[in-house]
């Protein structure tokens, strides 16, 4: 057995600088959940199939279960906790509630972050664009119809908010 040396990382997680020595044999999802207490990121399959562990790295959705912890170094990471200041709901979260797109909620953090990355690029996605964007996020409960509706509702909410500023 090789003795693993901790690897020093500096990254930004939800806007704050994080400096840690991480064991290279851990994954980003382990650091987020166990060391940083960010348990909004869920682990489903642990194999890159379900998207429950989706976080944004430098603005792009990725599966945190497929990222080795030391790979966080120099990256900017957003988890569901970092979407808005504490106690506030992001318009995408509001839309998910209003559209009834949350049942057990296990897929929801990943879905919402995927939706955020989509809406940052495309402020008015059609149904096909939404379905393509969430094709890496599995949901066992909702049947997806309400999730797609929620993301389109979120787009409308964000547009209205833009318009009112």
């Amino acid at each position: 057995m090789v003795e693993m040396k901790p690897f020093k990382i500096i990254s930004k997680v939800n806007g704050s600088t994080v400096e840690l020595g991480v064991n290279p044999g851990r994954r980003l999802i382990d650091i987020l959940r166990e060391d940083l207490g960010l348990t909004g990121t869920k682990e489903g399959c642990g194999e890159g199939e379900c998207g429950a562990c989706t976080v944004l790295i430098n603005g792009r959705p990725v599966n945190a279960c497929l990222v080795l912890a030391p790979e966080m170094n120099g990256k900017e990471i957003i988890t569901i906790e970092g979407l808005t200041p504490e106690d506030e709901l992001h318009p995408i979260q509001e839309a998910f509630l209003e559209a009834g797109a949350v049942q057990c909620g296990f897929c929801t953090p990943g879905m919402i972050l995927t939706a955020k990355a989509l809406l940052d690029k495309n402020s008015d996605p059609d149904e096909k664009a939404v379905k393509t964007a969430i094709s890496g996020n599995l949901c066992r409960c909702t049947g997806y119809v309400k999730i797609v509706a929620a993301i389109r509702l979120a787009a409308a909410k964000l547009a209205a908010r833009e318009g009112s500023i």
Partner: peptide
Amino acid sequence: MLPSFNYYQP
């Protein structure tokens, strides 16, 4: 936890 290895980031 994964198997033990040394990790390098050149």
